[in-house]
Computed example of a mutant assay.
Amino acid sequence: MAQLFIPKSYQPVLDLKQTEHAIKTIKDHFQTALSAELRLRRVTAPLFVMKGTGINDDLNGTERPVAFPVKEFNDQKAEVVHSLAKWKRMMLADYEIEQGYGLYTDMNAIRPDEELDNIHSLYVDQWDWERHISSAEYNLDYLKYIVEKIYEVMKRTEFVVFERYPAIQPILPETITFIQSQDLLDKYPELSPKEREDAIAKEHGAVFIIGIGHQLSNGEKHDGRAPDYDDWSTSTVNGYHGLNGDILVWNPILERSFEISSMGIRVSPEVLNKQLAIENCPERAELLFHQRLLKGELPLSIGGGIGQSRLCMFFLRKAHIGEIQSSIWPDEMRQTCKENKIILV
């Protein structure tokens, strides 16, 4: 409950019925536009994968996946996915998707270690996407190019919402601002990573923080990233590092930065070995996914996840993710929200 934020004089713009219609409008438009913009084919995704294959997303490396024994596999354990960061790259190879094209899927996950608040739920729904790239596109300029394409889809979706519900005025800036995580630290050396995100998002409205996972000049990471999907260690211009990052917007309802997407260019075989060594987990190289990558069976790619409920929450000016998705919440949180006109579905 200490994490729950109650906006002053909160009044939802849409009622429950209107909200359900608006959610469908946003999801239908956004995924169609994203598919067209990035040339992505929709595929069906797994809810769980076998434990010990290295396919599941390790997130920060500390979160526990939901696991269960499978009778037909002699009680070997399967895990509910955290995300499909590595699975998608294997599918690019297995579906033989050509360079310049990719795939996306509706990803549903359970993250039991999440601390429940306005934007975090046990249930995660996002569009996971992956696109086959060339070696010439394995660079920072190409990362920015894809980020700008996604941002254009966000702006078009915001306008669709405005046309349908004129009371919800567009607030996204015309362009998204790029900043390296090290530059962000240099700009706000006295602030924590989260406070730095709040400050830069409030200043610019929409930002992409580049380089998340590597160590900064203060000896800390901006945030954690697993070593085996995003490339966060490749040197780029001016000695900075990282070919990944997060799309953040300023959320005026919550008065804070608001992460919409985590994404990046995926590790090459060489970078995989490098990052496994940095994180002191070289043994992962023996797992199924890692072996396929090291043997050259997987294409170079760029990919990420875009939060479906997060996107709807932002566009509909909602104060709690539970106004968008059905999940479970502490009774005290439900009651406090109800008293403040925040109706959790």
Rank of each mutant, 00 (worst) to 15 (best):
R292W: 00
Q31P: 03
K144H: 06
L344I: 15
Y142L: 06
E297I: 13
T105S: 15
K27Q: 09
D231Y: 05
P7F: 02
D246N: 11
Y229V: 11
L311K: 09
R131T: 09
Y101Q: 12
Q126F: 01
I179Y: 00
L103G: 08
N251I: 07
R42H: 11
A109Q: 03
E137G: 15
K8T: 10
N340V: 08
H222P: 01
F5I: 14
L59T: 14
E297V: 12
A109W: 00
L185F: 10
Y229Q: 03
G245V: 07
L293M: 10
E332D: 01
P189V: 02
T53H: 02
S83T: 05
P166L: 11
N280V: 13
I260S: 11
Y240D: 11
H21L: 08
I133Y: 01
L191I: 00
T62P: 02
T25S: 15
G322S: 10
V161N: 04
A109I: 07
W250I: 08
R131V: 07
E37P: 06
H290S: 10
E137D: 15
A199N: 00
Y165S: 06
S217A: 13
I278Q: 07
G304C: 14
K187M: 01
E323S: 06
T44M: 09
Y138D: 03
D183Y: 02
T336S: 08
P282Q: 05
M1D: 11
P282D: 04
K86L: 15
I133M: 11
V345R: 14
E339Q: 13
E190I: 00
H204Y: 14
V13T: 02
D94P: 07
L103S: 09
T62A: 12
S233V: 05
A167D: 09
G211V: 11
P173R: 10
Y10H: 13
M333F: 08
P282V: 08
N218L: 00
T175G: 09
V161W: 03
H290E: 12
K8C: 09
F162E: 04
D198K: 00
G264S: 14
V49W: 05
R41D: 05
Q275D: 12
Q325G: 10
I321L: 10
E63T: 12
D231K: 10
T234P: 05
D198C: 00
R225M: 15
V49S: 14
I324N: 06
S327M: 10
P46G: 09
D15T: 04
L47W: 04
G213D: 04
L216N: 06
D198N: 15
N251M: 05
D128T: 12
D106I: 11
F258M: 10
R41Y: 01
D186E: 09
I342S: 09
L272V: 08
G61Y: 01
